[in-house]
Amino acid sequence: MISLIAALAVDRVIGMENAMPWNLPADLAWFKRNTLNKPVIMGRHTWESIGRPLPGRKNIILSSQPGTDDRVTWVKSVDEAIAACGDVPEIMVIGGGRVYEQFLPKAQKLYLTHIDAEVEGDTHFPDYEPDDWESVFSEFHDADAQNSHSYCFEILERR
């Protein structure tokens, strides 16, 4: 099963200049909980913004210009990325925008964090048809001392 995991502000903004323009430790914990011990696929820009392999996960970098870091697996196509994951129950696609666009048609599940923030962004989550998805989990949280904005975790499964 292919799943996408993303944090989205208003207007589906997911990033600005290779960074997330908010401070939500709870979302980072949600991300870790849902990706640990699963292969993660990301684009080169996302890889560069993280700066290191995510521990406890097979890191697969999709790029037309593969790098030389041998701590991760470099691939040039969506099919190659899927094959590099091996026989696993769930593959997690973690961004960025172009990689989400490439995998959305193949995805069966979306793990979304909806952030109540209007922020400037240069990267967006692809538009998706809500009628194609069923919400199977939703959990709202107010902003607090650690988390700069209110947010809602949601899991959607393709109908």
Rank of each mutant, 00 (worst) to 15 (best):
E129V: 11
E134M: 10
E134H: 10
A9D: 02
E118Q: 14
D116K: 15
V93L: 06
I5Y: 01
S63G: 13
I115M: 08
R71G: 11
P21W: 00
S138R: 14
G86C: 08
Q108F: 08
I60A: 08
I41W: 03
G67K: 06
L8V: 02
W22F: 09
I41P: 01
F103W: 07
I2M: 05
H114F: 14
V40L: 11
P53Y: 09
I14C: 13
F153V: 06
G51E: 14
S77G: 05
G56A: 05
R98Q: 01
Y151I: 10
E17Y: 01
F31C: 01
V13M: 05
I115S: 14
D131Q: 03
T35S: 04
E101R: 09
E101I: 06
T123P: 00
D131T: 04
E101Q: 08
D144C: 12
E120P: 02
R52Q: 08
E118V: 13
F31A: 00
I115E: 03
H149S: 02
T123E: 02
Y100D: 02
H45Q: 07
S150V: 03
T68L: 09
D132P: 12
H149F: 00
E80C: 08
L8E: 08
D131A: 03
A84D: 06
M42H: 12
R98M: 02
N18S: 07
R71A: 07
G43L: 01
D87S: 10
F31G: 01
A143R: 08
A117H: 04
W47M: 15
K106I: 10
I94Q: 04
T123H: 03
W133I: 03
A117N: 04
K109A: 12
M20L: 00
V99P: 01
S148C: 00
A19F: 14
S77E: 14
E48H: 11
I115H: 06
D122H: 00
N147M: 03
C152S: 15
E118T: 14
D131P: 09
C85V: 11
I155T: 06
G56N: 04
A117K: 03
N34C: 08
D122R: 00
G51F: 09
D11V: 03
R71T: 10
V136H: 07
L110A: 03
E17S: 04
S138A: 05
V99R: 03
A143H: 08
